[in-house]
Design a protein around this nucleic acid. Structure first.
Lengths: 223, 223
DNA sequence: GGGTCACATGACAGCGACCTGACTGCTCTC
DNA sequence: GAGAGCAGTCAGGTCGCTGTCATGTGACCC
């Protein structure tokens, strides 16, 4: 699968750098911009698959940047970043349009999960986990297989999302841990094993197949 | 695919005529209305797949029309037409649950592009609430199931309408809260729980089935 | 085979999210 | 003012998610 192109617009140098590196670490093709005007110029010329835009840009409101891009025919979903104290329910309307927002401060893992969820939603025709027959449904917080559906807890969902993001690739234990738990969280080594076991049980009830393989000494892989 | 039904509300005869013909030329099934009251009457009776509403209607503000339709259970995305440079209008439009904006004057091709984008984005998320066996009855402020009918209070209706707008999707608590209460309203976290409980009791009396599921740590889902 | 290690699995306690019934206050109508 | 109905809060109970532990199992190396 070709990596998704993500357009980023964030004026704070530190945050911009962190976000860019975090997204690139997840194999995304990131193009970072600093001002709203730059974002409109760059992304209307070559539309990315998803936009991550800070609401509080110095030269323009992030929502106006979005609006301007929409008038240029850019239909990619947008993930807004907003300060918690500036958050109000007025942003809720964006959900109906398929967009999303994240309040600062946020865990990078949360950003990654949201980004993947938005990308998945905007490309509903793309099977999520390759040939595994599994279908991650972020809207339902569940996994589908055939007509069956299994509800997942938040932690189970994050782990399976990380695996499904790169089907066929072996994900190291530390990669999975950092994807499922916030940075700095201390989780017992065995905790991941337990969750893998729970996921396997739920997936097994769906179609009786083995979806998550163990790669001894390395990690796990979704096939 | 059956052509999408588009509800148009525009008082200016020239613009109405141009828009109607342009959309029909794109194979859309257009129903044009002139006043806000007519729009509410017509489109709450037979909800289209998308609404195009002028903000500056003579008898009502387009945002109020949108708001009224939302409380009638109409969940279709809305494209507002508005005068240029009206930032406050934009924000207020999103308050009303609108999904996109177009500032006059605009190119017809822009309109078409964004209509298609909105339809594309909303398509997977808008099966009718009938899939759950429940039917929202805005006129009676009630919910029907089979031949049974349960009266709902206004707040209960708004919550159920929000859930029914996206059956199968988990709605976060904050989404439901912002859908059921006005912006800025401070409601105790537990209040939503209480209303969910009341709704469950009423729905349970209709057919004895469990309609609203809890997704722990996330929100609620109508199935 | 025997030892070691990594992983699998079932059980469990803590905790927080959620559920529920009861209650108060408010508004509207008569 | 009385009554009815709705909205919102509270307290206490229940339930499920989470993370950990103990123990079992299988892979690998010698």
């Amino acid at each position: 699968m070709i990596s998704a192109r993500i357009g980023l617009c964030e004026d704070d140098p530190d945050l911009r750098s962190v976000l860019t590196r975090a997204l690139r670490a997840e194999e995304f093709d990131v193009r970072a911009t600093i001002t709203g005007h730059e974002a409109v110029e760059v992304f209307s010329a070559s539309a990315p698959d998803l936009l991550v835009i800070d609401i509080g840009l110095p030269d323009a409101d992030g929502r106006d940047v979005c609006q301007a891009l929409r008038t240029h025919g850019v239909t990619a979903p947008v993930l807004f970043l907003t300060a918690r104290d500036a958050l109000s329910d007025r942003l809720a309307g964006f959900h109906a349009g398929g967009d999303d927002y994240l309040t600062k401060p946020f865990a990078l893992t949360e950003l990654i999960v949201r980004v993947r969820a938005l990308l998945r939603r905007s490309a509903p025709a793309t099977p999520t986990a390759g040939a595994s027959g599994l279908w991650l449904d972020p809207a339902a917080h569940a996994v589908r297989c055939g007509g069956q559906l299994a509800a997942l807890t938040p932690t189970e969902f994050r782990i399976l999302a990380a695996l499904a993001a790169r089907p066929g690739d072996v994900l190291r234990r530390r990669e999975l841990t950092s994807a499922a738990w916030p940075d700095g969280a201390i989780v017992h080594a065995n905790t991941l094993d337990t969750y893998i076991g729970r996921l396997r049980r739920k997936l097994d009830l769906l179609d009786g197949a083995q979806h998550i393989d163990t790669v001894r000494g390395v990690g796990y892989v979704l096939r």
